Each structure stands twice: as C-alpha cells, then as structure tokens.
Computed example of a mutant assay.
Amino acid sequence: MRLSTVLGIRRIKLRNRIFSLGIIITGMLSLVFGVVTFYGQNAGNFVMSVDTAARLRGIVLSTDPEFETKSARLMSDPINEARDITYAWLKLDEITQTNGNYTDIDHDYVAYTFYLKNEGMETVDLNYYIRITEVYNNLDRGIRILVIEDGVETMYMKRDTISGNFYPEYMPEAEYFLTDNTVMRKMIVNLKPEQVKKFSIVVWLEGNDPDTTDDLLGGMIKMQMNFTINRLN
C-alpha cells in the first residue's frame, strides 16, 4: 500500500495573481514565488492504499462514506501549476466536505478526502505513516503536509535551516518530520468491525517558510503513505 506524490517547481512570479485577487498581505510570503507541479505515478498526485495483510483482515478505502464503492487503492487528480501559498488560504471546510479530490478555484494544492473502514470480523490496530522516498533540490524544506483524521488537524514540516520567528499567529504549530525520510507515524488503536475513519490530506508549498526560495526551483519530492496491520495483532 502506498501514497506517492511528486512535486516539480518552475519559476513564475505571483504578483499579478495576488493583486488580481485583491489580496494585500504584509510580511507574509517569501520574496520569491515559484510554481509547483504536483504529479505522480500513473498521472496522480498521490496514491493511498492498504497493504496485503490489512486487506486480508478486511481493511478497505473509499471516497464514499457509505462504501458503496471501495478499493485497496485510491488516487488523486494531477495538479500542474501550484504556486506557493500559506495555511490561511486553504479552504479546509470545503476540503473536508468534499469526498475525493478537492479543486480550489483560487489556489492550487493537493487536497483529498477519503475513508477507511474495518469490514473484517475482528478489532485491529493499524499503523500508518508518510515517508519521503525521493527528493531533489531540498524541496522537502518548504512543503507542509496536513493530515486531518476525524476532524483533528496535524501539520508536519521539516525544521527550518535558520532560526527566527517567521510564522503568523494564524498558523498552527507544526510537528517536525521524524527523520529526514519519515514525515510522521501514528497508530489507530482498536479499530472495531464496521468502524470508519475519515482522512483529509493537504500538501502545499508554504510561502512563509524562510526556506521557500529560488534554491527550491526545479525541485521534486516523492512520498508514500502506508496503512498496515500492527505486527502485535
């Protein structure tokens, strides 16, 4: 089971777009605005799936909360020109109310909502994690990954390479990547038969990050998200 995401960056300024939207922000975004292309294997942004052991125990995924259609693997739509944005621009209410891929008409970023269900006959513990498998031009320094599990938000980032107070008060405090390659790792405890979990995943290039500079242009990153049965089950 895996979630795969690839991001590439090209140089394009955002000034015209910001003014055309009527947005006036002081001291918010970095001086350099790049364009990010989100794309992945099989033309998707990222892939979510359960591994064989979890599938055999009845763990399934769906973009339908009623699970009329279900799968061990889901894929989002590609995004071609995503400029760096900031957390306040995310339309989180709309994202979490839209099943599957969410498209923001104002800004470009990865946003996908899906459901996980235990259709097996026994209660299980599930591990899930996001891991970086490839990265170029240090793109991992500027991205943010927001995981919303049953309405609870957790934002992940790599530690800044320079110290300072760069982030406005509206931004939630982020958890740092566990390692250079592992973004996060959590466990779903006692997932009972017929129980459903709701997830929304959002990925963007954060403009307030001091590491979002020209150095990231041409960068690329690839990630996997895995759901697995806890080995102690």
Score class of each variant (00 low, 15 high):
residue 117 K to L: 02
residue 55 R to K: 15
residue 196 V to M: 07
residue 57 R to I: 05
residue 120 G to Q: 03
residue 16 N to H: 14
residue 14 L to I: 10
residue 82 A to S: 12
residue 186 K to V: 02
residue 127 N to H: 08
residue 140 D to E: 05
residue 62 S to W: 07
residue 41 Q to M: 14
residue 6 V to E: 13
residue 179 T to A: 04
residue 107 H to S: 07
residue 150 D to P: 05
residue 127 N to C: 02
residue 155 M to P: 06
residue 84 D to W: 00
residue 165 N to R: 10
residue 106 D to I: 12
residue 141 R to L: 06
residue 63 T to S: 01
residue 129 Y to F: 10
residue 34 G to P: 07
residue 209 D to H: 04
residue 22 G to A: 09
residue 201 I to C: 03
residue 151 G to A: 01
residue 23 I to D: 10
residue 6 V to N: 14
residue 193 P to L: 01
residue 209 D to R: 00
residue 188 I to H: 06
residue 223 M to F: 03
residue 158 K to P: 00
residue 79 I to K: 14
residue 74 L to K: 07
residue 56 L to W: 10
residue 220 M to P: 01
residue 191 L to H: 03
residue 84 D to V: 01
residue 160 D to P: 05
residue 133 T to M: 05
residue 134 E to F: 12
residue 25 I to T: 15
residue 230 N to V: 08
residue 223 M to R: 05
residue 102 Y to L: 01
residue 162 I to F: 05
residue 57 R to S: 13
residue 181 N to E: 11
residue 150 D to M: 08
residue 84 D to S: 10
residue 1 M to T: 12
residue 209 D to A: 00
residue 212 T to Q: 01
residue 121 M to T: 13
residue 221 I to T: 02
residue 32 V to T: 14
residue 82 A to I: 05
residue 41 Q to S: 12
residue 191 L to K: 11
residue 111 A to C: 05
residue 44 G to K: 09
residue 4 S to G: 15
residue 24 I to T: 15
residue 109 Y to E: 00
residue 102 Y to V: 02
residue 188 I to N: 04
residue 181 N to V: 06
residue 123 T to K: 09
residue 122 E to I: 09
residue 221 I to N: 00
residue 214 D to V: 08
